[in-house]
Nucleic acid binder design. Structure first.
Lengths: 151, 151
DNA sequence: GTTTAATCATCAGGAAACCTGTTGATTACT
DNA sequence: AGTAATCAACAGGTTTCCTGATGATTAAAC
């Protein structure tokens, strides 16, 4: 009766836990630069996928365009990103990293890499690839956010 | 030149992606009940670890006690949790689920389980255990949040 | 080709979740 | 006894998210 077995947490919860822990670490790294973890993440997405619009960026992050607008404004104000109209679709405002944004990412990257290394420290060398495979399948299962659609 | 290799995202980013997707799914499930995904998660933690304080709950979620206070207040106001002083340490206000809170969790659980199942749908039956093992090691590596300390 | 529908950006307003900094009460350490 | 650590809470503020509405532009339907 009072003998309740620990009841293992769900996988959903474990994922949240790891994300929370990594966000805390990321925040620590990016705070000195005046960036939040989410802003840093958005910058890395723009680095990997140039010429995204705010709307696409929002879908990629499973949030509404209005939510993303707040962050885009912050990054614009700090001069880390830039934007211009797409001549082929004049509704679209295409985002791109500025040189300042690129420099900031380059400066932060080593710390982030170290954080990831620390996360994986206890695991064998084969684990990262395995974890990647599993996570990508999970993302797929939950409905991948229309990404990686090259020109 | 315009041939940029996709540059695989970091594992930290993949974890965030899966968490974002799962949070979106969770929010959809819990919104009808007037709960956010985070509030639901806090309730499940209290279910698995009765007699936690808000401070412990905060550490468990890698946030400050002040941040957790907002959510605790919301859950108290909705009558989903309760609290009382710990007679052995009168600084502590111990949290516990109310019957209403327990009922709500029971009602939401099937949907959450289905969400997790959907996430894992593409993977073989051995994957969940493997994923759990990897994620637990990651959490450990990032500094586990003083949990699972039974009485 | 004109109407209809979808998409993009944006404004307004608000809620939730985070933070720093401070204070007072209680317990633990010395 | 006195210092340090912990817990809860107050004040005030930022970031991140939402719904709802609007105008501009493109795509689809008729």
């Amino acid at each position: 009766m009072s003998q309740d077995r620990p009841e293992p947490p769900t996988l959903l919860y474990l994922i949240k836990q790891v994300e929370l822990a990594s966000r805390a670490g990321l925040d620590e790294l990016t705070r000195p630069a005046g960036l939040t973890a989410l802003q840093y993440t958005a910058l890395t997405v723009l680095e990997r996928h140039p010429d995204l619009t705010a709307a696409r960026l929002a879908r990629n992050s499973f949030v509404t365009a209005q939510s993303m607008a707040d962050m885009v404004t912050a990054l614009l104000d700090r001069g880390l990103i830039d934007r211009h109209r797409d001549p082929r679709d004049r509704r679209r405002l295409v985002l791109s990293l500025t040189d300042d944004g690129r420099r900031l990412l380059d400066r932060l990257r080593p710390g982030v890499t170290a954080l990831e290394t620390r996360m994986l420290a206890q695991l064998p060398a084969t684990a990262p690839a395995e974890l990647r495979r599993l996570l990508e399948a999970c993302r797929q299962g939950l409905g991948t956010p229309a990404e990686d659609r090259a020109s």
